[in-house]
Design a protein around this nucleic acid. Structure first.
Lengths: 209, 209
DNA sequence: TTAGAATCTGACTAAATGGTCAAGAAATTG
DNA sequence: CAATTTCTTGACCATTTAGTCAGATTCTAA
């Protein structure tokens, strides 16, 4: 079958395997051999597709960022804050659930000072946040919600939505559960949404009409 | 000077240096030589005091847990929920601020599945949480606060209070600041406290009377 | 003071691991 | 159906690094 096609598939297999391994063991803890094993191909093959361990790592980060940015063009000042925030929160929780490895890898990178993400944080994420902050400020000025520091609000939403992916081991141990199921996901999303909305002085609409 | 004394001091120096390095580069990313350099002694000396890289790592984790457990005996059902929660939140924020390396190291360990903390999570942290959950449930039964899932509440407090230590690189980049100062600390604590209290249907008492 | 224990240290070693390479297999193309 | 390019792979290498060790130094106790 077409080579072009294969090449794409192989690269993707490598990226996926690498994401899992990097998330599981950290950058330094990851062995190229482990990625190769997981991807089901000889190690040398990985070095054919990617220049180096670090190059592969950067490629994984890039892909994560691309995936995340896609469905995230969020709302304008005209929207209803309660609905918009609820949407945003449920979206984030769902995203962490869909790809916990991505969330964890990203978290590890930031915990270690984000050495490879400065550019991204400063020139892509910061403007994105600024735009959302502006929207929230508009809502506040329009009296649609309680006066609330928009930056802090966004940080708090990030923190609580990602927590279930990043600290899953802790959450499961405390709850004495074996896995994070879809029910718990819904409960979690509703809980966070409810807390945040009430915190912003917004009324929470019941999710089961 | 006394040997016993020196021994203790040296061990402590090693532990502190190791905590910084492990937090900064992760377990695998950390070099024994780097710990030695930071502690200002030859590498072989570290292996005299600690069996192995992993042994030292476990010792660091142990010390972190000990430090954390000390001031955390929290409240009973008789206390006022608003005050108790506010206290707890401010305490946690302060703790993250005082020793961000500890917070980050712990976070890294959990993100990677908490391979060395299963015992601690299941047999020490879980009972601790259970006890707080019981208190919160009492508050709810007594009509002192809104009906709220106590586990989710604790997770959310953990998530948002630790976020500023663990994801500091991100927070600073977004806010375009160089460092996390004491003012921002206070704002953050007040913000989180306010959000959580309102979320629980409790009234927030102003902090500047 | 001195024997003996505890501590410290530079030099060394064995193992692990990222990365290379040359030769072969497969696909593409004119 | 060559000729050429692209891809695959086992074997190999250079480097890094945790951990060792024997000898020096410092402390303790009698």
């Amino acid at each position: 079958m077409a080579n072009r096609h294969n090449r794409t598939i192989q690269k993707q297999q490598i990226l996926t395997a690498a994401k899992q391994e990097y998330a599981l063991r950290g950058f330094s803890g990851t062995r190229m051999q482990a990625i190769a094993d997981r991807a089901g191909m000889p190690k040398a093959n990985i070095h054919y597709h990617f220049k180096s361990k670090q190059g592969l790592y950067l490629a994984v980060l890039d892909q994560i960022i691309d995936t995340w940015n896609q469905p995230f063009e969020w709302v304008s000042a005209d929207d209803d804050p309660a609905e918009a925030l609820d949407n945003f929160i449920r979206n984030k929780v769902q995203q962490s659930y869909n790809d916990p490895a991505a969330s964890r890898l990203f978290a590890s990178e930031i915990i270690q000072g984000a050495p490879h993400l400065q550019e991204y944080l400063r020139h892509r994420m910061r403007p994105w946040v600024k735009a959302r902050v502006a929207v929230i400020e508009n809502w506040i000025k329009a009296g649609k919600m309680r006066e609330t520091d928009p930056y802090q609000l966004i940080f708090m939403i990030w923190a609580s939505t990602q927590h279930y992916a990043d600290f899953q081991a802790q959450v499961l141990a405390i709850l004495n559960k074996a896995e994070f199921d879809s029910d718990l996901l819904q409960e979690t999303a509703s809980f966070i949404s409810g807390m945040i909305l009430r915190g912003c002085g917004l009324s929470v609409k019941d999710n089961k009409p």
